[in-house]
């Protein structure tokens, strides 16, 4: 009996499904299908100057789906379908938006207020954090081993965050060479980039200037992580730094990361032993293995090179402006 019922069901007339493909003009010309109606009667949101530059094309809205399926007159007469010449729905304005308060009449405005606030805040609000120690490494150099770190943490929502950055280095036997910490307000300025502004404090031997910081950080095309900042010191000196790195996955867990950093200054700063122009570059190539995403030991090479007047100052002081090193370290975040 049930078999029969299913068979009867299956025997019911089925309208053929419309093909999903769009209707090409030559097809339309042959009467095989009809072109989708011009999408929107509203003025095209593609300004002519844009279109002229090839940035966009007119009629930008997605076309309406093909009109409803072929409806033979005998079907239509039986009320099974409507003829296909159904006009597209008009672009009527929406009614004015009311207050979201329907449940107030049932449960009382007071009872609803807190849960409604929470509903809105919970879906899309919220604050998060991340501490990323990108590099904590030992540097094996010709005779003078040392260490270095570079870490960044953020706390906040999707748009505005407090960002703390720190980096520094030192020699195993010699003195701590110097480090810095930055406290920045980070603000999303687009899908990929944050503008960052705040202060930087250097510490270590010698002068420890304080800087005002203005920078950007984000993800560039081709998956390059990039960062750039200008620093204005409390003495009025202006310098800058640009960094870029790239993660090349060799396997799902083995990742090769080339990285380059360039420092420059707009004036010489004798007490910091830097000249004007490019002061130093640092290039690195690190191979890490992600035991977990959050925990990855690595090995690699890093090469620091002082440039221009800064290099001359270093040489005059008996330092080698070029410092290659083998590195081994840990990338860890949580």
């Amino acid at each position: 009996m049930s078999l029969l019922a299913i068979a009867l069901l299956a025997a019911q007339p089925q309208e053929p499904a419309m093909p999903a493909q769009s209707c090409s003009p030559e097809h339309a010309a042959m009467g095989h299908c009809s072109m989708p109606a011009p999408a929107e009667p509203a003025p095209p949101p593609c300004p002519p100057e844009h279109a002229a530059m090839g940035h966009c094309t007119a009629a930008p809205m997605p076309p309406d789906p093909p009109p409803s399926s072929p409806c033979p007159p005998e079907h239509a007469a039986m009320g099974h379908c409507k003829p296909a010449s159904e006009p597209p729905a008009p672009e009527t304005p929406a009614p004015p938006a009311p207050r979201v308060d329907a449940a107030d009449a049932v449960f009382g405005a007071e009872a609803m207020a807190a849960s409604r606030r929470r509903l809105y805040a919970e879906h899309g609000g919220g604050t998060f954090s991340q501490i990323m120690v990108d590099r904590a490494e030992w540097r094996v150099r010709d005779g003078r081993d040392g260490y270095a770190w570079d870490a960044e943490g953020w706390f906040g929502g999707d748009i505005d965050r407090l960002t703390i950055k720190s980096e520094g280095e030192g020699d195993r036997d010699g003195p701590f060479e110097g480090g810095e910490v930055q406290a920045l307000w980070s603000h999303a300025i687009g899908p990929y980039f944050n503008a960052q502004t705040g202060v930087r404090q250097d510490f270590g031997p010698g002068p420890s200037p304080t800087y005002a910081v203005l920078g950007v950080e984000g993800l560039a095309p081709y998956w390059f992580e990039v960062e750039g900042a200008l620093f204005l010191s409390d003495k009025g000196d202006v310098s800058g730094r640009a960094e870029a790195s790239y993660d090349q996955r060799i396997t799902q867990r083995l990742i090769l990361q080339p990285r380059v950093e360039a420092n420059f200054a707009f004036q010489a700063v004798p007490e910091l032993a830097t000249g004007s122009g490019f002061t130093a570059i640092e290039a690195g190539l690190r191979l890490r293995y992600e035991i977990a995403r959050e925990f990855a030991p690595y090995v690699g090479v890093a090469w620091e090179r002082k440039l221009g007047d800064t290099a001359r100052i270093a040489r005059a002081g008996g330092d080698d402006p070029s410092r290659p090193a083998f590195v081994a370290g840990l990338r860890v975040w949580f």
Partner: peptide, 13 residues
């Protein structure tokens, strides 16, 4: 709607 079960919209939870 008051039986739909979405806290903050249908009922207080």
């Amino acid at each position: 709607f008051q039986m739909d079960g979405v806290p903050g919209l249908s009922f207080p939870g």
